[in-house]
């Protein structure tokens, strides 16, 4: 079957190229946030302040937690996102968080022949891993680095703005004003759309 043969070829080729690809294209560690679709050279953005696009918040209910995501494109100089604020009365607290694979023994190599389409999050939970490997968890981070002229994605399974103990429901279709503080760079105001992913 030709598809099968193509697959073997692709797997064989991958075997040769997986190392550089893992670094360049796949972004094995979500903390790099390097999505191939948005890093493909954007020489136009040389403004000094970071640019924030595609801000969205997951719907949530009062008393629960939720998260805000966005894409941050750095300006001419590197900066750090250090603080995120929401309008008062939205939530008890807001933190910067990172989700990562935190189990032990998570270095098991994912076998490509398992036919997965998964990106970088799967090393620990892939077919060869032990039962306890590859648990996921999230922890607070002090800051999210934004490289000069680089892009950082806050997205499910990686960095997120953790919104804790909502004081009110967040319903799809609403707008949520978000104030981001960069060091250096000052504050940037954006509006996140509340929507399902």
């Amino acid at each position: 079957m030709t598809t099968q043969r193509f697959r073997h070829l692709a797997v064989a080729l991958l075997g040769v190229t997986v190392l550089p690809l893992g670094l360049v294209a796949c972004g094995n560690d979500s903390s790099d946030g390097a999505d191939p679709s948005t890093t493909a050279g954007d020489p136009g953005s040389t403004a000094s302040a970071p640019k924030v696009t595609d801000a969205w918040a997951r719907p949530g209910t009062a008393g629960g937690n939720t998260a805000v995501y966005m894409t941050i494109t750095g300006g001419a100089e590197a900066t750090k996102l250090v603080k995120v604020e929401l309008p008062s009365g939205t939530a008890s607290s807001v933190e910067l968080h990172e989700t990562s694979v935190s189990g032990s023994g998570s270095s098991t190599t994912m076998k490509m022949d398992e036919g997965s389409e998964m990106g970088g999050m799967d090393q620990g939970s892939g077919a060869g891993s032990s039962m306890s490997g590859g648990m996921m968890g999230m922890k607070a981070v002090d800051a999210i680095e934004v490289p000069a002229d680089g892009t950082v994605e806050l997205k499910p399974g990686g960095y997120h703005v953790m919104v804790m103990d909502l004081q009110k429901d967040l319903t799809a279709g609403e707008s949520l004003p978000v104030t981001l503080t960069f060091e250096p760079g000052g504050t940037v105001e954006v509006t996140a759309t509340v929507r399902e992913p």
């Binding site: 598809t3 697959r7 692709a10 991958l14 190229t17 796949c26 972004g27 389409e117 990106g119």
Partner: peptide
């Protein structure tokens, strides 16, 4: 080939593997 087979991570990725595999 590497891109198609190895990447496409995340929930927004397209579907590019061969249909024969789960």
């Amino acid at each position: 080939a590497g891109w198609a087979a190895g990447c496409g991570g995340g929930d927004t990725a397209g579907s590019s593997t061969t249909a024969a595999e789960f």
